[in-house]
Nucleic acid binder design. Structure first.
Lengths: 150, 150
DNA sequence: TATAAAAATACCTCATTGGTATGTTTTTGT
DNA sequence: ACAAAAACATACCAATGAGGTATTTTTATA
């Protein structure tokens, strides 16, 4: 019931890219510095996002990563699915046959509903939504203070 | 984003006790056998529930555990809090000062809302609710088939 | 009062995962 | 040819989840 840093870092990475706009490929090193996250760890995460089709990787000099879709087409649900896969709260939601009570089990029903709520909510929030809700005083901050924890 | 067995076992344990009604103290060994869960592991979990004030432990021969409250006064939220403490999805929900953007950060708002939804939902479901939604064919089952996974 | 039943306590193990670091290989623009 | 960057492989450490063993304390009762 805790969010892994993979999700939080992944979201920050994607949001960082969305904020840069369309200035061409962004080096992972740049984002790592800007966000105060380990470069190599971010590399690993961004590769998950690439496999999920959310970013494109461009090799060679001048290369880097770009969003594969416009920010309003990428949702938090997409990011979560890319870095963690479809996550279910408990096994019986994935495989009903794992529990013979799956039809009548109220506990299962509860977890299923919560699962659904989370999913629906994250699907409704795009990178554009996140980008457009910046902190008003953000521009005045020192770079070090711009770190977001999420 | 996955439920630990602590929560699932804890819930099963509490539900098992609720189903027994008021027949006096129940040995942890009995529940462990009935639920197909490691006895020693269940012991550890039930002690968390005791510290949380949800069950009372009675030592000596004929002893065991009893619910500390009537089943309709114990909610799934109570159980979760007893075995895991108040769990927040991300650190900034607990300690806003951990992130300078806490006032404007939309991501934080999202996690906070999801947190709230989960909490409210679990608070609304009592052991009595769970107990009264049994499987119709449960009585006909072999003991081994009564295992619930949750 | 001795005994046995049960909770309570204190450890310890082991596998998995999360988070990070280091080094190498492949691609590609110049 | 060279250098920049992604891509890949691997190893490490700490924390956690899941479970086990052994001992101590309390208490009913024979």
């Amino acid at each position: 019931m805790k969010l892994s840093t993979t999700i939080r870092y992944g979201t920050r990475l994607m949001l960082d890219m969305a904020k840069q706009g369309d200035k061409g490929p962004v080096r992972i090193r740049t984002i790592a510095k800007r966000q105060g996250i380990s470069e190599k760890y971010l590399e690993k995460i961004v590769r998950l996002l690439r496999k999920g089709g959310l970013v494109d990787g461009l090799r060679g000099p001048g290369g880097g990563y770009v969003l594969a879709l416009p920010p309003d087409k990428i949702t938090m649900a997409d990011i979560l699915e890319a870095v963690q896969g479809k996550v279910e709260l408990c096994p019986c939601l994935d495989e009903p046959e794992a529990c013979i009570k799956h039809l009548s089990c109220k506990t299962r029903k509860v977890w299923g509903e919560i699962n659904q709520i989370i999913w629906t909510k994250l699907q409704g929030i795009s990178l554009a939504d996140l980008r457009d809700s910046v902190c008003p005083s953000e521009e005045e901050m020192e770079p070090a203070d711009k770190l977001m924890q999420f």
